[in-house]
């Protein structure tokens, strides 16, 4: 059972901070999603954890830093970028090279090639691989040492829907075996299905970490839908108790800032009839956008007004 513990990770490029005093834990037996907008420092953080970038802070895997691990691939498997292999070295040989460094028998190579579905092309050259096949080979390399910890940076990049489904099942299964899985992705719908825990960062700072359900329920976009003919009595009390009430197009009301129980109790107190009372949970995407709204590194701006189109040639 491995615990990843990152403490005070920091890194700056040319004086510009990329990761700032980042600390979090990844527990064994769970998939921990690593979320953040583009340029928020996710990949840098993963490289810092593995000692690939020089920064400050420490990351331990069961109490030991990565550089202290003997045969590290047997303990921590990593996928950090798409297609990290020589284009003309056969896929199987790529894994043989990595295996040689970690005392892993060649028989294990056949196992992981089968696991990722690349057996039929194991003697092929990666230069002919699609991005998805390259990702599968990278995942095979990460799994080569049968490690108790996986660190995967955008592993679903380039995978088709079947591939994403396969990856989700694989990671869930590995987590159920007690391994610690730390995975970044920009596919929030996928992360909602995959992750148990989240670490969310923005501009290199930790925004939040904890269970996915907690993160989603804390979003301001989680609301209580109320339908009542007595809203004129109920609404002032809800506002007094910190709720924010808006009218929905279907004549129901949406209350944020209060729980379903609090709204129900308030209705009871003022004798308001309730025809409908339900909680509408925010999606992970909404919660993520709420949490990182001010942390986007790269923001596009819509053009003002209608797009200007040049008249067709021959017209003035």
């Amino acid at each position: 059972m491995a615990v990843i513990e990152a403490r005070g990770l920091s890194k700056a490029y040319g004086g510009k901070p990329a990761v700032v005093d980042l600390s979090f834990r990844v527990e064994p037996g769970s998939v921990t999603g690593f979320l953040g907008p583009n340029g928020s420092g996710k990949s840098t953080t993963m490289r810092l954890m593995l000692g690939l970038d020089n920064g400050t802070g420490t990351t331990t895997f069961d109490g030991r830093e990565f550089r202290e691990l003997d045969e590290p691939m047997r303990q921590v498997g990593a996928l950090l970028e798409a297609k990290p292999f020589h284009p003309t070295r056969k896929a199987r040989n790529h894994l043989r090279v990595l295996a040689a460094a970690n005392g892993i028998p060649d028989s294990r190579i056949d196992d992981v090639m089968e696991l990722v579905g690349l057996t039929s092309v194991s003697r092929g050259k990666p230069k002919s691989f699609s991005l998805g096949m390259g990702q599968r080979l990278g995942i095979a390399a990460a799994l080569l040492g049968d490690p108790h910890t996986l660190i995967l940076d955008e592993p679903s990049n380039g995978l088709d829907p079947q591939g994403i489904n396969w990856l989700r099942k694989l990671l869930r299964q590995l987590a159920s075996e007690g391994r610690a899985i730390f995975v970044s992705s920009h596919l929030l719908s996928e992360m909602a299905l995959l992750a148990d825990q989240l670490v969310v960062i923005g501009r290199g700072h930790l925004i939040t970490s904890g269970p996915v359900a907690e993160f989603v329920s804390s979003s301001t976009r989680t609301s209580v839908i109320v339908r009542s003919p007595d809203m004129d009595r109920l609404a002032p009390l809800l506002a007094e108790r910190g709720g924010y009430v808006v009218t929905s197009p279907d004549a129901s009301f949406e209350v944020t800032g209060l729980s379903q129980e609090q709204v129900g109790d308030s209705a009871h107190e003022v004798g308001a009839r309730l025809y409908e009372l339900m909680t509408r949970s925010a999606t992970l995407e909404e919660a993520f956008l709420d949490a990182t709204g001010l942390s986007e590194e790269f923001v596009g701006h819509p053009r003002d007004g209608a797009p200007h189109l040049a008249p067709p040639s021959g017209q003035s």
């Binding site: 000692g51 691990l69 691939m73 990593a78 460094a101």
Partner: peptide, 18 residues
Amino acid sequence: GHEYRHGMIRATLTALPS
């Protein structure tokens, strides 16, 4: 050269941290 040209250096250093 191959390590840097083909992005192998990170895979190498995750297999061999020293």
